[in-house]
Design a protein around this nucleic acid. Structure first.
Lengths: 166, 166
DNA sequence: GGCCATTAGTTGATGCGTAAACTAATTGAC
DNA sequence: GTCAATTAGTTTACGCATCAACTAATGGCC
């Protein structure tokens, strides 16, 4: 990470703008939440990236070309290869060369992976609830809207199916 | 991460709880913001982690033991060594063995690093402003409070000097 | 039908995060 | 004073992100 923005905060520069404080709070909070999830996934032998891939495959319920998977994650293309190899070694996915176009590699879930995902569903949902427990739903809605607003000021073009309030 | 939570969102599971949506929005937004910062730092030959270390050193205006630096970042101890080595190779910090306790290694900024940091100040502030430009200051204040509220539900014990509203 | 550009995917190198095991200096108990 | 426990820091090993450079199959153009 995630690289991380941290606790230089500790001694607070007098000149910090509200924008800076908010940004650092955002990065720190996300970082911590990530850590919770990382731990949860690790208990099931997965990393976050691996989970995301499995999740995409489950959502599709059909084999997907490897680059299609990459395009749905933020993972830059080359990273996906090793990721999938490790998943394959763990018996969680299968790789199949496409007959029609021998360049493409299809990835599919194994039963083992489906089982792991299923076991993970409830604990993961509980984690979501726990992390957000202190915000009532009305606030959550507003928070989501603001976060989306922030993303509007950011680079990536293809992320704009509006999640929140019209 | 940074590892990342992503666009499984694309096809929206009907069962998504508001908590889940909010969490994913949080992670995604932070991720994007990070990317902006990473790019900025890279233009100056730094990574985010490296910048954070330099920033801590500047804040202290005095040499710090390497583990003290590690403790102020989220960087887990062993990571700090290589990080500092690379900074040293880049001529940005100096390592000095402490005479009194020969176990400890003091790290100090070079003039070169001070110059880089100084050049970075304005662009970085501009980036903060830009990223948060769509939220008026009142909303920012509320956002900061909520983020802090979320962090209260999260693990790390030593992060609780309240940044926001009393 | 042969060549060139495109597309799918991999490889290799560097930096970071994390965990476990290690060295070396210091402190404390006696 | 000496030996055990603690503390500061490094090494090693693995996974991921990212970039640049690569291979291999396909498609289009003539």
């Amino acid at each position: 990470m995630t690289a991380r923005l941290q606790r230089e905060l500790k001694k607070k520069h007098v000149f910090d703008s509200p924008q800076q404080v908010a940004l650092i709070a955002l990065l720190r909070t996300a970082d911590r939440a990530q850590i919770e999830l990382v731990r949860l996934f690790r208990d099931y032998g997965l990393t976050t990236s691996q989970y995301n891939i499995l999740r995409i495959l489950r959502g599709e319920a059909a084999p997907l070309p490897i680059l299609e998977i990459a395009s749905r994650t933020i993972t830059v293309v080359p990273g996906i290869t090793g990721l999938v190899v490790r998943l394959e070694n763990a018996g969680l996915v299968l790789r199949t060369r496409c007959k029609a176009d021998r360049r493409v590699v299809f990835i599919s879930l194994t039963a083992k992976a489906a089982a792991v995902l299923k076991r993970l569903d409830a604990p993961l949902d509980k984690a979501h609830q726990r992390i957000m427990q202190r915000l009532p739903e009305a606030d959550l809605k507003q928070l989501i809207a603001w976060l989306e607003r922030i993303r509007c000021s950011l680079a990536d073009p293809d992320d704009f199916e509006t999640t929140a309030d019209p």
